[in-house]
Design a binder for these strands. Structure first.
Lengths: 195, 195
DNA sequence: ATTCGATTTTAACTTAGGTTAAAATTATTG
DNA sequence: CAATAATTTTAACCTAAGTTAAAATCGAAT
């Protein structure tokens, strides 16, 4: 399967984008590779692209004004969209950095081209809605995890949801994602072993 | 101004729904009043309506399986949409209760009618996308507040964003929304006075 | 295999929220 | 206005995360 086939399949699953619909978009998709550490989008830049991860992992993080500490907001991995949702959706400057955590490969489309597709076809407008809905679900799951779960529960949940990530990225990135400090994650891990 | 005028104005501001667009929808909007404590949507029900609050306040809350404790996820107030986003968007059973916290009055539209509008008009499909985007922003702000702010900072932020709510609803509802216990909010309030 | 750097854990101490129950305050209503 | 209910604060004690720095471990590269 080519990269475009993988994408076409994913879009069909996600938004019932069929062959003809996808054909409309084929000219717009571009390919790019990221070395570990390279940025998909940076602070204060408007996110103009919607990416689809062929391979790799990205993180979106916020830099605390006071402490300079980095806090991971989202992880994105293989066969998922990578985008700075709010910035992309509203075309306003981004508060975050989105960075490749390993060597990665994506297909991406420019917002202007996506808007052309929205104009051209109801199906693509529908896709646009689904992107926003997906963004919502991702954020909502995160909100719920903070509101309903302890850090320990969030950690166990993350293992369940993304066992893959743990082989790839360092634990201090995980603790940042969980909203706790490194030593706290160590203590949690120690506690869990005893269970 | 009639209720419908208020709604038309809000939709125009939100999604550039003009007079003709709105006229398409006019037949579908219905009116309803809620006594304090009545439910907009209950746990396990699919949320089939999108509401617009003419007057009043609603809360969406989750009941903890283990403790039976209620945790407030969202507040909705005057001139805002009230809806159980995820359930409405995906038409799946809701994990939450959405309840009127004071006597309230809304206009609402059925999902089937909204879908008719999506079919009929690009502008309404656009509106559908904006609803999802708005849902995302609401949730994202909430995620960020948990990830970047202490309970004290969240409390101060809520005062700034919704000074109105504090006259209307009890503090224990606020503490639930902030993700802390009653006594903690009391301590925070005491701490703040000394500043 | 050894060294250097990165990552993870540990330790010791501090801070703040959780828990439970009682007291104080505020609202409501007969 | 008194009584009752609802809400908020306080107290006392517990638990877990924050903080800082040092130690231990792991990995990559020479």
């Amino acid at each position: 399967m080519t990269d475009l086939d993988i994408l076409a399949y994913a879009l069909n699953t996600l938004a019932k984008v069929d062959e003809d619909d996808f054909a409309l978009s084929a000219q717009y998709w571009q390919r790019r590779s990221y070395k570990k550490g390279e940025y998909y989008n940076e602070y204060r830049n408007v996110c103009k692209y919607l990416g689809f991860i062929i391979d790799g992992v990205f993180r979106t993080y916020y830099v605390d004004d006071n402490t300079g500490e980095e806090k991971n907001v989202f992880f994105f991995s293989k066969n998922q969209v990578v985008v700075s949702f709010k910035s992309f959706i509203t075309q306003t400057p981004c508060n975050y950095f989105t960075q490749s955590m390993v060597d990665s490969k994506i297909l991406y489309i420019h917002i202007d081209d996506l808007n052309k597709l929205y104009q051209q076809s109801h199906k693509w407008e529908h896709f646009g809605r689904l992107i926003a809905e997906m963004a919502f679900n991702v954020s909502m799951n995160r909100t719920e995890s903070f509101l309903f779960q302890t850090p320990e529960q969030r950690y166990l949940q993350l293992i369940e949801d993304h066992p893959d990530i743990f082989n790839t990225i360092p634990l201090y990135q995980i603790s940042s994602y969980l909203g706790i400090q490194g030593p706290s994650l160590s203590r949690i891990r120690k506690r869990i072993i005893g269970k």
